[in-house]
Amino acid sequence: MAHQLRAVGLEFVDSAPVRLVFAREMSAPPEKVFHALVDDVPGWTEWFAAVTLARPTGDGTTREIRLRGGGRFQETIIAAKEPEVYAYRVDVANVPGVRTLVEEWRLTPSGAGTRVRWTFATDGTAAFRAVARLAAPGLGRAFRDAVGALDRRLTS
């Protein structure tokens, strides 16, 4: 059953009880990566294997996301500063125990390419926080695979 999450801003990324941070280098430049994240929301299904549906809603400041396994999210974009940061807050989720969730994609130049840092910042019940921490290796692998697939997509 879907439920409303707590509305927070970008500052939550630094103060969340559970912060999982992953990074990977890409050969595509930051501007190209930023536009893939922000402007091609439906394209996420082509490079992020866990995402089965991604579509902008409303005036483009909100998104609907569906994941393999049945996860469903309504999100609000809380930062889109080209080409440095893209972040969104989950407003509604069907994941039990989650109370707050923000994801931040931070892009920094790295030679001719981009260093992508993804922060998964969350809070919830004690059980949810424990499961989120245990999920870190799987989330890290999903992130690395997704960034690799996005890089291939952008440089082919």
Rank of each mutant, 00 (worst) to 15 (best):
S27M: 15
A28M: 06
P30V: 05
E31R: 15
K32W: 10
K32L: 15
K32M: 14
H35I: 14
L37Y: 08
V38Q: 01
D40W: 12
G43M: 10
T45H: 04
E46L: 15
F48D: 08
F48W: 13
A50F: 08
A50T: 12
V51T: 07
T52W: 04
A54L: 10
A54T: 12
A54W: 01
R55H: 14
P56T: 15
T57Q: 08
G58I: 10
T62P: 06
E64K: 10
I65W: 09
L67V: 14
R68Y: 12
Q74N: 08
E75I: 00
T76W: 10
A80W: 02
E82T: 06
E82W: 05
P83K: 08
E84H: 09
E84F: 09
E84S: 05
V85W: 02
Y86H: 07
A87H: 03
A87P: 00
Y88Q: 08
R89N: 12
D91F: 00
D91T: 03
V92E: 06
V95N: 01
V95D: 04
P96E: 10
P96C: 04
R99Y: 09
R99H: 09
T100Q: 07
L101R: 10
W105S: 05
L107M: 05
P109K: 11
A112V: 15
R115V: 00
D123H: 00
D123E: 07
D123V: 01
G124Y: 00
G124E: 05
A126F: 09
A126L: 14
F128G: 01
A136W: 00
P137K: 13
A142S: 13
F143Y: 08
F143M: 14
F143C: 11
R144W: 04
